[in-house]
Amino acid sequence: MDLTFYNVDQLCSRVNLTHDRPLIDLSDVTFFRPFALVYLGMFLRYHGYHAGRGIGFTVQPPVNDQARAYLAQQNFWERFNFDPASIQGEKLNRFVTSTSLNDIVDIERRPNIAEEIGNEVTAVLRNSAVSVKVSTVAEVMIELVDNFAGHSNRSLAAVAMQYYPKPRQVVIAIGDCGIGIRASLASNPRHGYLAQAPHYKAALDAFEPLVSCKSEGGTGLTIVRDEVANVNGSFVLATGDGYVKMNNRGMIEAGPMAYDLPGVQMEIVFPEEP
């Protein structure tokens, strides 16, 4: 089974959080899409520590060798089962230094974090033989990291970047378990009505120009949408129990997720140029 945007929310909804050590069954998983990795990571991080519950999860690891090795290589359990407030600096450094196209890294909220991640993404892509428009990938990443730093009210997020040679695409994913798009927008009195709206409605509005928690209005997600469409890319975004998806023909779809996970989790696909 591939764990992707289409089923990772269902997997999370089946986890019984009332148990002392809730079970996460990944035994059937043979492939982790970046979105699923980040979404599952945020699920663990949110319920593990952000909710103040200190839940320890029991994990049924993948039977598939490659899938199991992939999680180990990404330090997946250690990465998402820690308390970001108490982790030692040395260990965090190991988690936040990207070395290749196939890494997942944690990002801390600090003033220049978006520029730093943008520089790293640019360097990694330029040092590889991947023929995507590097400036577009970097700009989209910068916008999304800036959104996390400016709006999530959380100190830590995760970013994953993968290159798939067969479909010839670069895929990035970013996720946090912060306040999410709806609460952020509703903090602006102009968009206060969204506090009672479905999450997907708030997410759709966030892609419109000048819709922001700031009074002067913002353009971050509008730019992301238009830049991704401009290179025939696609994206999925989840926030709370809603999602917005744009395919590579610029068609947008919105609806409910099976699980209500706080924050924003997003995956963007950049196809290589012919």
Partner: peptide
């Protein structure tokens, strides 16, 4: 900004033309 065609769906499903994982 361009105009995008929007649809609301009850249950999300993968599109047939979407690229899957690397083989």
């Amino acid at each position: 900004p361009p105009t995008y065609k929007l649809t609301y769906v009850i249950a999300k499903t993968p599109e047939h033309d979407e690229s899957g994982p690397p083989s």
